Computed example of a mutant assay.
Amino acid sequence: MGVLVIEQWTQFAGLAVRRIDAGDGDSAGRAYAFVNPRPRITAQGAPDAYHPEDTGSGCLRDAGWPGPDWRQRLVADPYQPQRPLRQDAGGYPGYFVSTTALHDARFPRTSAAAYLDAGRVAYLALPQAWLAEDGAGAPGDFVVVHDRGSGRHSFGLIGDSGRDRAMGEVSERMASDLSGHRAEARSGRGAPAGPLLCVVFPGSRREPAWPLQTAVIRTRCQQLLRAFGGVAGLAPLAASVAGEE
């Protein structure tokens, strides 16, 4: 581990974003980080996320239905394009097909199996406007998120983006990792205590970026984090990024 250089990069959505450099000249030792004081949970991509009767694990209003913005988060029915597509097979018939920016190209875009299941995959969601910034990364890049309240952490990916995304929404699985309890977007149950340190490794995406086994994600995140002191270095890193040291 080299000497960590943490410097102010920019402000986005009211959050200070800082660049981190391990000072070893290796691109693997570079990242950026921010502290999210009010983490939100998303069910996006889960096959049971959104139901027309609003009985899914996520609130239907978060999908934009029946408003004008639902096409950002739901698949349109090919035969009735003015309405979202409903699943007719699998474990959740009748539920809408909820999308994520990162997807599995082996499946058609109309299949719920193409998208990251928020209940099973630890992912971070970032605003589209932020990912348009040079150096912000892209869906599929690796991330490590640390809950300063619980001291727990989660290894994952940038999994989703959108125009109306909050900076640093966490999937239900990532929220569960951080709180130690099963999380649900609708009720907020199992939400991480926060605030959350979000460390993003831009340019770390693999090809293909998805699917990846959980063990592969964990191993790669641990490798990337090693330059910053590993898991043990997350708490002091969070304090530094928050400007407390």
Rank of each mutant, 00 (worst) to 15 (best):
V3Y: 10
Q8I: 09
W9D: 10
T10L: 15
T10Y: 04
Q11P: 03
A13K: 13
A13Y: 09
A16R: 13
A22Q: 02
G23S: 07
D24H: 04
S27Q: 12
Y32K: 02
R38E: 14
R40I: 11
Q44K: 14
A46L: 02
A49S: 11
Y50L: 07
E53H: 12
E53R: 11
T55P: 03
G56T: 01
S57P: 01
L60K: 00
R61G: 07
D62S: 10
A63F: 02
A63G: 12
G64W: 04
P66R: 01
P68R: 13
W70L: 05
R71F: 13
Q72P: 05
P78S: 06
Y79S: 11
P81G: 12
P81F: 11
Q82M: 14
G94N: 07
G94M: 10
Y95D: 00
S98T: 11
T99Y: 05
D104A: 10
D104W: 08
A105S: 15
T110W: 05
R120A: 14
V121F: 07
L124F: 08
A125F: 05
E133S: 14
P139T: 04
F142N: 00
V145I: 10
D147K: 00
G149C: 09
G151M: 07
H153W: 15
H153V: 06
S154A: 14
S154E: 05
S154D: 08
F155Y: 14
G156R: 06
L157R: 06
I158P: 01
D164C: 13
D164F: 15
R165G: 11
A166V: 10
S171V: 09
E172W: 03
E172N: 06
R173K: 13
M174V: 03
M174K: 04
S179G: 12
E184M: 15
A185M: 09
V200C: 07
R205W: 01
R205Y: 02
P208W: 12
W210N: 06
Q213W: 12
C221Y: 09
Q222K: 10
G229V: 05
V231A: 10
A232L: 11
A232T: 13
A232D: 13
G233D: 06
A238Q: 04
V241D: 03
